[in-house]
Design a protein around this nucleic acid. Sequence first.
DNA 1: GTCGTTGCAAAGCGTTTGCAGCCTA
DNA 2: TAGGCTGCAAACGCTTTGCAACGAC
Lengths: 130, 130
Amino acid sequence: MYSPPMDRNTRQRQAIRRIFEEADRPLSPQEVLPAAQSYVPGLGIATVYRNLKALVTDGWLESVALPGEPPRYEVAGKRHHHHFRCRTCDRVFEIDGCSTNLAQLTPRGFRLEGHDVVLYGLCTACSKIV
Amino acid sequence: MYSPPMDRNTRQRQAIRRIFEEADRPLSPQEVLPAAQSYVPGLGIATVYRNLKALVTDGWLESVALPGEPPRYEVAGKRHHHHFRCRTCDRVFEIDGCSTNLAQLTPRGFRLEGHDVVLYGLCTACSKIV
DNA sequence: GTCGTTGCAAAGCGTTTGCAGCCTA
DNA sequence: TAGGCTGCAAACGCTTTGCAACGAC
């Protein structure tokens, strides 16, 4: 998989980085596109994909995979954390802390190396509306 | 989305059900295809997809979504459980039990309705090989 | 014999890639 | 000015769908 060396600071790349700095939650390419276009009209979806990939290679973004969902991305370097997906607005939020009793679930003979925890429900905004 | 009424017991459908009864772990369409073809040569991938969908509608299968993975399917009606994915052979296994301290992770103002837990590591077979 | 089901091939859909032209350094 | 980067459109891989033939009941 090809990843650009990211050695030029284009308007498109600036816009995409800015979107993530403003959002503070994992964003999908489809969420990034219209947001980035508000800064750079005409910015194409291919540019979004290419830059997301490049920013991951660069270590500036990390990909966030949730069950049954296309990959999202968030600014890298945060502490170990998990995610909460709102079933109404489909937005994903970061949650601090981590479940501590996962090791005891591991079947005999298996070697545990990592884990994902995803919570589902309603975010603050949506739980007020319903 | 169209789902067949499932009122005929074809060789293809028998084969697919049999695969799941024998496997006892979540299977992807790509895992089902060759296995079902060993019973019914020439069975097509479209038939696999159609029957998986139909068996879910029928309540005989449930879909299992893991982060960054295409959907798998397992026989429905089991107790609440989670999954373990082997990083070497990519197979997914069911694990009993459930983490109990997830509610405390929920951010203030959010309403928790459900959760997913996925463990990663090596299965018994692969931890012996490495 | 009916009509649900199948296999094949075409169509979808989100993501990736090829390419000519653009624009940053 | 060089060559990394962009937008467009074609290509991809996986899943879904249309359709004529098949076969379970």
